[in-house]
Design a protein around this nucleic acid. Structure first.
Lengths: 253, 253
DNA sequence: TATCATTTGTACGTATGTATG
DNA sequence: GCATACATACGTACAAATGAT
């Protein structure tokens, strides 16, 4: 019996190895919402049967998605779609630390929520059609730690993908915004690109952060992507730079 | 025949899985210099025989080290100890980009090289004994792009570990400094931690970089580690922040 | 408390594909 | 063409965690 009797998409001697094809198929299922965040996937032998391959091959494909924090395996329980809530801190993309080395989890205070037309640079970053003035949600926040403002955060998301996003939904959740995107809009952020600039604080930001205009500040611009490298969010944060810094670790076992 | 007849260190029913033990053993061999950067390891079946386990188990251990960029596998050739030279860009830890999005590879101009006593904060960062005024090498450089200075870089390394490091060795190599550390001193950097600060450029740095004192600048402090999380280098760079930024990507397939 | 079915984790053996020299 | 070495793939067995019985 041909191994892939049940699934015509698989190519046995394709340029790509089977397990990579399985990985892509699972990604497709995720992108199409067949398995939603927090849900359990069919077990490995079921998936193997469904895709017409050996368990080994399914495991290899899943392993890559686990390494990418898209799936989570739990022995004795199953394989799950990763969630963005604060408990499982896998999706805490933030790299801002207090200067004493402690990672911070600031609170979010919503300042404004509006629906506007994207300007050209935003439309370009979010891959929106540039001719028809695409509609976006604009979210302005202040990040606070112990009720002291430490950063401003301006967010832009395409309205088409974020149907159902409201000021109320943002205000009422204490979670990571990406958890809100998952819950409310079904949007899964799986990758970010971040650029960090040293800037002079402008008058408005300086006033908000309780520093002087012209003081150095860290501007952190981020584009967040969902499956298939589709950009879904642009956010720009400006951090008070006297007590906080940006920190990463790279390499190692 | 007991599987681990040839190696008494392995524990069959230890808390740690076999492949993790193999990984540690390989790391030990690397730390002790049995296999040097660029060299080929024994092939998988030889390693399996040596450690008294199946090939599968050796592969699992090696895979973790490959993921950490410590080993490199090349089909048909073998498994090699990763090198830090510029060709294989795996060990380009730098995250500085030009504002148009192009990653930069600046040239290094040596300004001074000296042997001094570490002050307390350096001794602490590099885990040096604090009572006996440990000796360190101090390296001051300017990073240039198309012969225009874009950053200053001050480096401190413990003299004990970096025997053989000279101004000449640094000046004569066009490679990454970490390649020099490997070649000249046998020190392998496998992990870094980096902190990014927004600061005002001081007079001296501003003068070097061709900007004004007080202009915003990116200070990037890094501690580099070798095997077993031993810190081996502290470096502090100050980057001109008008044309350059710090950039990372995280997550994704 | 103890047992049992389910599910992933680890480990082994084997076969074949593919890149390299 | 050939030997070597890693890459992929399959089948199997048992361990360990989990949750329900």
């Amino acid at each position: 019996m041909p191994r892939n009797a049940l699934n015509s998409k698989l190519e046995m001697h394709a340029s790509e190895p089977l397990y990579k094809q399985i990985e892509k198929q699972i990604l497709d299922c995720l992108a199409q919402g067949e398995w939603k965040p927090g849900e359990r996937l069919p077990n490995e032998s079921q998936l193997a049967k469904r895709f017409g391959v050996a368990i080994f091959t399914v495991r290899a494909g899943i392993s890559e998605l686990v390494a990418a924090n898209i799936l989570i395996r739990r022995q004795g329980k199953g394989t799950f779609v990763a969630r963005h809530d604060r408990q499982r801190q896998r999706y805490q993309f933030t790299h801002i630390f207090r200067n004493d080395g402690v990672k911070i989890s600031p609170e979010r205070q919503l300042v404004s929520f509006s629906r506007i037309s994207a300007d050209r640079s935003i439309a370009e970053m979010l891959h929106l059609p540039q001719n028809e003035k695409p509609s976006v949600f604009r979210v302005e926040c202040i990040l606070k730690l112990e009720s002291r403002p430490i950063a401003t955060m301006d967010i832009t998301v395409p309205a088409r993908l974020f149907a159902g996003l409201t000021a109320r939904a943002i205000r009422e959740s204490a979670e990571n915004l990406y958890a809100v995107y998952q819950e409310v809009c079904g949007v899964n952020v799986i990758r970010i690109e971040e650029r960090v600039y040293a800037v002079k604080a402008g008058a408005r930001v300086a006033n908000t952060l309780g520093i002087h205009a012209g003081d150095p500040a860290l501007r952190v611009d981020r584009i967040a992507y969902t499956y298939n490298d589709v950009p879904v969010e642009f956010r720009s944060r400006v951090h008070q730079a006297f007590d906080y810094h940006y920190q990463i670790s790279e390499g190692g076992v």
